[in-house]
């Protein structure tokens, strides 16, 4: 698998895929996409990077341990749900607000953060699985 072309292309391919995954994540509420799909795309990106260049560079690029990312995602989703409690509505009720930034109106919501959480859990957990399996190949 470690051909020169693949090894050279992989980092760029991976970064493109990660960017695409974020795009898919953000458009998810109104167009096809969302946290699950985005997360899977990002996870595949890291898996490809790992196959091409080995696990160590991926781990360095990620900086955090993948499971820590997943844990953060779960935490984020839960907090997004708990925010509703603070407003006196049932757990996980969506709260919406509009932010005007540079003339563009952004819909911000707890649901968005919940979806971010889903994204991080999927990225973290599946990258972690893929890397763990790839790692064993090296020894």
């Amino acid at each position: 698998m470690q051909t020169v072309i693949f090894r050279t292309a992989a980092p760029y391919l991976a970064s493109l895929m990660v960017m695409f995954s974020v795009f898919v994540l953000l458009r998810g509420h109104n167009e096809p996409g969302g946290g699950f799909i985005g997360g899977l795309i990002a996870a595949s990106a890291f898996a490809i990077y790992g196959i091409a260049c080995g696990v160590t560079p991926v781990r360095r690029a990620l900086y955090f341990h993948p499971m820590a990312i997943a844990g953060f995602g779960l935490f984020l989703s839960t907090v997004a749900g708990l925010a509703s409690l603070a407003m006196g509505v049932p757990f996980l009720t969506g709260l919406w607000t509009e932010v005007h930034l540079l003339g563009v109106t952004l819909d911000l919501s707890t649901v968005l953060f919940f979806d971010f959480g889903v994204y991080f859990v999927v990225v973290g957990a599946i990258t972690s699985i893929a890397l763990a399996l790839e790692e064993r190949e090296e020894d």
């Binding site: 969302g34 699950f36 899977l40 999927v122 957990a125 599946i126 699985i129 763990a132 399996l133």
Partner: peptide, 17 residues
């Protein structure tokens, strides 16, 4: 199905390992 796909994938990965 969307969530089921992801869950069954995790499950498959676990069984594989």
């Amino acid at each position: 199905i969307l969530t089921a796909i992801v869950i069954s994938f995790s499950f498959f990965a676990f069984l594989l390992v």
